[in-house]
Design a protein around this nucleic acid. Structure first.
Length: 234
DNA sequence: CCAAAGATGCGCT
DNA sequence: GCGCATCTTTGGG
């Protein structure tokens, strides 16, 4: 007979095994993976505590276009983009870590661009406090993960620990807890120079959380639906 | 040395 | 809300 604490641990482990995303999830076209990742939950164990965030914004990158790091050529730092689908690719963007996952197609990947903290029975009660420890100032929950480097900092994910590695049910993985995503905004990626395929509509946002993403197309005066962005119904 | 798939505060509308 | 200047750290030529 297991003690209650062991039972809880077992239950936790079984839930992880049931719902975590495996390599076959990522072994698809980068845009499909980018869309499917919306509503999925990043879970990272940091100092014995489980931290989690719901993905609300992603970008797809292909070796065959000019915005991707892989299109710049193979280097050791970029090797994870060329590794099998489901390999974690992390790099430093302006001094802070950024999280990507390789997909089907050598050199193709998805950038996880923003998320919001997600609390449930698996996460630590003091999760928000631990996320906030990454920042000098006190931040409201919706400002903890709304940026590709901010979410890595809040979840305490480092390049040294996770670049070119695989997800792992005991430390860091992506979970499918069946959250509903009914509409997706498809629009242009951010921070891409005009001559590097900036026009491609490879950025995806969970419509219901557009107000929490890095840059909301719905409230822009200059962007027009049908030209600069589309709303996809699932 | 400097470019790079950022984040922020400030001033303006 | 938007554009712009300025701060940031690392890997690669």
């Amino acid at each position: 007979m297991l003690c209650p604490e062991s039972q809880a641990r077992n239950y936790h482990f079984i839930l992880q095994q049931m719902s975590q995303l495996h390599a076959d999830f990522f072994d698809n076209d980068a845009q499909l993976v980018a869309r499917a990742l919306l509503g999925k939950v990043l879970r990272h164990r940091y100092q014995g505590r489980w931290l989690a965030a719901r993905i609300i914004e992603t970008e797809a990158y292909y070796a065959g276009e000019r915005a991707s790091h892989s299109s710049l050529g193979y280097t050791s730092a970029r090797r994870a983009m060329f590794m099998p689908a489901g390999t974690i690719y992390m790099y430093h963007a302006r001094g802070h870590p950024s999280l990507n996952v390789s997909t089907q197609g050598e050199g193709d990947a998805v950038l996880i661009k923003s998320a919001i903290p997600y609390e449930d029975s698996l996460t630590s009660p003091d999760m928000l406090r631990y996320m906030n420890m990454a920042f000098p100032d006190e931040r409201p929950p919706r400002r903890l993960c709304n940026g590709q480097t901010l979410l890595c900092r809040a979840l305490h994910l480092s390049v040294d620990d996770w670049n070119a590695r695989q997800f792992d049910a005991s430390h860091f993985y992506i979970d499918d807890v069946r959250l509903e995503v009914s509409r997706i905004i498809q629009t242009t990626r951010l921070g891409i120079a005009a001559q590097r395929d900036a026009h491609l509509l490879y950025r995806f946002i969970d419509y219901d959380y557009a107000s929490c993403c890095t840059k909301n197309p719905l409230t822009s005066r200059t962007l027009q639906e049908g030209r600069d962005f589309h709303i996809l119904k699932i």
